[in-house]
Design a binder for these strands. Structure first.
Lengths: 136, 136
DNA sequence: CTTTGTGCAAATTCTTTGCACCAAA
DNA sequence: TTTGGTGCAAAGAATTTGCACAAAG
């Protein structure tokens, strides 16, 4: 995924593509590891030396507001961000702290239940446990 | 749910039932509103004037370690706690911030997918949106 | 007595806010 | 030249830690 593709993606969501914003989106598109703010900041800092963590926060909050990315609340310590909007679940390893995608979930699980009390906009399916590699 | 029932429940999980611990568990059993630490602390303080928030944190962390309650990460601001171990989903209202149970979810949604890479211990199914009452 | 639990104060961590400067339209 | 974006420093909020005292076995 190139810088230009990230740029176009932002435009589709009516987000003015500054250098910082485009770099954050490009990073999310290329690193499907559900990074934290800190991980994004540390990864982009070398390339954009003036970058501040505030801008990363501002940027991600804007992306969420515009619906371009999803915030994952799977990890109580840090917010994590995902630009993949396809229907998939997440696994959080309590040992290494990493979040992995689980793609092979029955699609009907992602159907929104009808409920007269609530208007549902989105959902998250989160699994918790240990990576088999961490177990050893 | 009485104090004595909470007391017995703690014993089943090998948790020494102090006055503070039993009160926290009794509160969780009687208030299925997925309270935050602050809500529990504020509710119990009048009855146990010496109670500290540290003790509420210590107590809930112990309960989680022993498997007696589940921590919900549905709300990125505060951890929430649930003593109901039956298979159910949660709804988070972005307007009022309350968490509601959703009981009428297809039971097969709660089946743990088999995955050779991960050992799954638990799961959370979370929905996000607005209460119809908040919408008006 | 010896171990365990409680609770105060301080520290830590994550995130937001206020504000001045910079960049873009 | 006006609006919007960035980034520093400070503030705020949630949670954990260190430690002394209290309680329980």
């Amino acid at each position: 995924m190139t810088y230009m593709q990230a740029h176009r993606y932002l435009m589709q969501y009516s987000i003015r593509p500054s250098v910082q914003r485009t770099a954050v989106m490009e990073y999310l598109m290329n690193h499907k590891t559900h990074p934290t703010v800190d991980e994004i900041y540390l990864a982009l800092s070398p390339g954009i030396p003036t970058l501040s963590k505030t801008t990363v926060y501002n940027t991600l909050n804007l992306f969420i507001e515009k619906g371009a990315v999803q915030m994952l609340t799977i990890d109580e310590k840090n917010a994590r961000y995902d630009a993949d909007t396809s229907k998939h679940a997440h696994f959080y390893c309590g040992t290494c702290g990493k979040v992995h995608d689980i793609m092979n979930v029955n699609p009907e699980v992602f159907e929104i239940p009808s409920n007269s009390q609530f208007t549902i906009h989105s959902m998250q399916l989160s699994y918790y446990g240990t990576c088999t590699s961490c177990n050893s």
